[in-house]
Simulated assay, not measured.
Amino acid sequence: MSGARTDLPDGARVILASHNAKKLGELQRILTAAVPGLAPEQVISSAGIALPDVVEDAVTFEGNALLKARSAAAATGLLAVADDSGLAVDVLGGAPGIFSARWSGRHGDDEANNDLLLAQLGDVPDAHRTARFVCAAALVAPGGAESVERGEMVGLLLRERRGEGGFGYDPLFLPDGETRSAAELSPAQKDAISHRGKAFRALAGHVAQLLV
């Protein structure tokens, strides 16, 4: 590749446009299981790589995921994967939605976000505390090919935090059919049912086609 970047690890083939190590671990596990010959170290994150800042000004999960993936593909020349995800609460009309990470006003403040959500749902009966995690995962190739897949995990919101695992709203989310919160599941158990696991697995087939 003419003008190839020197800050990319040797052998890198897919970049995840995220600094989130837990997301990278999920993507590495899913893609290496689905794409023959793809090694975990060939799937890298954008942590430590100087990529242009992306203004996430789309109004859908799909739109924001594509913005990030397009930027990473153009900057690195690699297949780029990005996701945008959040929590949609039925009684709040689908909020916080695309604003999930900054619902309390500070981006990525999980404790404040959970506290605010608990306060907003304080008087809501258990039967009406339905919600879903939503993930849109986007794949963009340097040549312009694009794919987007969507995954959802449906459940109920608890009245107090449970569990030490996961991140975001996981301690408050009880997936349908489970007696444990998303934060009480092991990574493998969560991958099997989560919105991100479903979206990444659906995207894996597109990655395999482009890496042949």
Rank of each mutant, 00 (worst) to 15 (best):
F61L: 04
A65T: 11
S45V: 00
N114Q: 12
G25I: 00
V59T: 15
D57Q: 03
A75P: 13
D109E: 12
K22S: 08
N113M: 07
L67P: 11
S85E: 03
F99S: 15
F133G: 06
P40Y: 02
R102A: 07
V91C: 14
A75R: 04
L121V: 02
E56D: 07
G63M: 11
D115H: 12
A58R: 15
I98H: 12
V59K: 14
V55F: 04
L51C: 08
E26S: 01
G86Q: 00
T32M: 08
D126K: 10
L87I: 04
L27T: 14
L117V: 02
A17D: 05
A119K: 14
I49G: 07
R132V: 04
H107L: 13
S45W: 00
S45M: 03
E111P: 13
G97C: 04
R106P: 08
D110P: 14
A88C: 15
V35R: 11
T32C: 15
F61H: 14
E41M: 11
T60A: 06
P96H: 01
G77K: 03
D90N: 08
H107Q: 14
K68I: 05
V55S: 10
E26C: 00
A95T: 01
S71E: 10
L51I: 07
L118V: 05
A69L: 08
F133Q: 05
G48P: 04
N20M: 03
G37T: 05
C135L: 03
E41T: 13
G93M: 01
P125Q: 00
P96N: 00
L24W: 01
V59I: 12
R106F: 04
L78I: 02
L92G: 09
I30S: 11
V55N: 08
P36L: 03
L92Q: 10
H19K: 14
G122P: 08
A82S: 13
S104T: 09
G37M: 04
R106T: 15
D90W: 00
G94W: 07
R132A: 10
G37Y: 06
D123T: 14
R129Y: 01
D83R: 10
G105I: 01
A112I: 12
L79S: 09
A127V: 14
D57C: 01
